[in-house]
Design a protein around this nucleic acid. Structure first.
Lengths: 184, 184
DNA sequence: GTTCCCATGTAACCCGTTACATGATTTT
DNA sequence: AAAATCATGTAACGGGTTACATGGGAAC
């Protein structure tokens, strides 16, 4: 019986299924632009998964020579790969979700900080959230122009991030208001 | 120059500073009840950090014999440990935050699923979110009764989780409504 | 008398990261 | 001449996980 594979393997498999004929280099870029917000993958890891998928026979690699750029490997899913992807999608989701926030961890110990340190912690958090928000808005804008099922799925995951980010921005304001009361 | 320590080390250090005289076993329980929502720590890892902190001289361990239970080690921060904690809190936060969601990853590939598979994916997601919400509400309720700075900090981090969870619940409804339109 | 709570630990694994290497081609 | 893009890879590390071991006292 085969050992269970990490979700990351299926993430890369799904990407190749979505963008057939792409090189590893291109897949890294696509991953960074698409699901990086809820499933980040580093370049090294993606290449490792490419190896694994090829060994499993789930993707096939083709060498492509280029004139104005170095040669590259391109990938596409095999029938077995598409079946594996479908099986993974059909299986019950084990609710694998992880969240770690350095900001919240520090805020949890904020009673050991000077009040203005707490202020700048929140201010920094707000600006990262705002940057995130703009990025997500741009992504959704770009996807709104396309009316394919894949674009819609991407747009809705971006919306998930946007709603999350907006709620957290409101939280920052809520907390700042509450802390402001005590300082006066 | 000392290698940089992971945030987890400071998380445990902060916990001991917050709950002095606790045993490793108790700290595991406290960590699970307090910052597990944004900084989960497994039992094994926490014990490893306890070792590290003792070796650093940031916490001191005391053996305590018990009559009706096995002997235990209890921990409290040293002056050096408190200084290290303060230094960590004062340093600029490198925005270490990571988020990985198995649900979103699958939803991103939902165009390869049957419509009712998407439906149950969302339904499952909703119930985990609702369970999370109730847990956070209970936590906030319990902390609202206490009016110490540490309780307030804990309550506000719980509020962060609550706002996040609520936004995601609204996202589920938003998405379900949008998918419902197409099925009819 | 089995199961739960207290209490600490070992072993093994591997996912994911950072840093670095290489080399050609194209743009500035 | 330098920097950016394309393209793939190696090496080393470590943080975090799961599974398991142990053992006594308490509770049901």
């Amino acid at each position: 019986m085969a050992a269970e594979l990490p979700d990351t393997t299926y993430a890369v498999l799904g990407l190749i299924d979505k963008v057939p004929g792409a090189s590893g280099y291109e897949l890294v870029a696509v991953a960074g632009r698409s699901f990086a917000h809820f499933w980040p993958i580093s370049q090294t890891l993606l290449y490792r998964e490419l190896d694994r998928l090829a060994n499993l026979g789930w993707v096939a690699a083709t060498r492509v020579e280029q004139l104005h750029a170095p040669s590259k490997w391109t990938y596409h899913t095999t029938a077995a790969g598409q079946q594996a992807l479908a099986g993974w999608l059909a299986a019950p989701t084990p609710a694998t979700s992880s969240f770690r926030s350095g900001v919240l961890l520090r805020f949890f110990f904020s009673y050991r900080m000077h009040p203005d340190q707490v202020g700048s912690l929140l201010a920094d958090y707000r600006s990262t959230l705002q940057a995130q928000q703009e990025e997500l808005l741009m992504m959704m804008d770009k996807l709104a122009a396309v009316s394919t099922p894949t674009a819609r799925a991407g747009r809705l995951t971006a919306l998930h991030g946007l709603r999350t980010t907006q709620a957290r921005l409101r939280w920052v304001e809520e907390v700042e208001a509450q802390l402001g009361e005590d300082d006066s």
